[in-house]
C-alpha cells in the first residue's frame, strides 16, 4: 500500500497548499491590500483617473473608456488594427448585439 499512501499524501499536500494559498489570498485581500485598494480609490477620485495604465502605445489603448468611436479605424474604415493590445480588447457591446 506504499504507492497508494504516497499518492494520497501528494493529493492531500496539494489540496492543503491550495487551500492555504486561497485563504492567505483572502486574508491579504481583507487586510493590508484592502487598504491599498482604498488608497488606490482615493488616488483615482483625487486625480480623476479613468483607466489602467497598461497599454501606453495608443490613445485608445491607454484610455479605452475615453476613446472615440473611430479610434480603431483612424486611417480608413475597416483598417487593420495596429497594436497587439487592440486584439485583447473586446469590441463594444453594441457590436456584439448586447444593446443596453
Amino acid at each position: 500500500m506504499m504507492k497508494g499512501k504516497i499518492f494520497f499524501g501528494v493529493i492531500i499536500v496539494e489540496c492543503v497548499l491550495l487551500a492555504v494559498l486561497l485563504i492567505h489570498g483572502r486574508i491579504r485581500y481583507h487586510s493590508q491590500d484592502f487598504h491599498h485598494l482604498e488608497a488606490k480609490r482615493t488616488l483615482v477620485s483625487q486625480l480623476g483617473l479613468t483607466d489602467y495604465a497598461i497599454w501606453t502605445e495608443a490613445r485608445y489603448t491607454r484610455h479605452p473608456s475615453q476613446a472615440d468611436f473611430f479610434s480603431a479605424f483612424q486611417d480608413f474604415p475597416a483598417a487593420f488594427e495596429h497594436f497587439p493590445a487592440g486584439g485583447i480588447i473586446a469590441p463594444p457591446q453594441f457590436l456584439q448585439g448586447e444593446v443596453e
Binding site: L21, L22, H24, G25, R26, R28, Y29, D33, F34, H36, L37, A53, I54, W55, T56, E57, T61, F83, P84, A85, I88
Partner: peptide
C-alpha cells in the same frame, strides 16, 4: 499582454 507598450506596469494584484 504587453504588446508594444514601452512602459508596462508590474501586476501586483490583490489575490481574488
Amino acid at each position: 499582454l504587453k504588446g508594444w507598450s514601452v512602459l508596462f506596469p508590474a501586476f501586483q494584484l490583490t489575490p481574488s
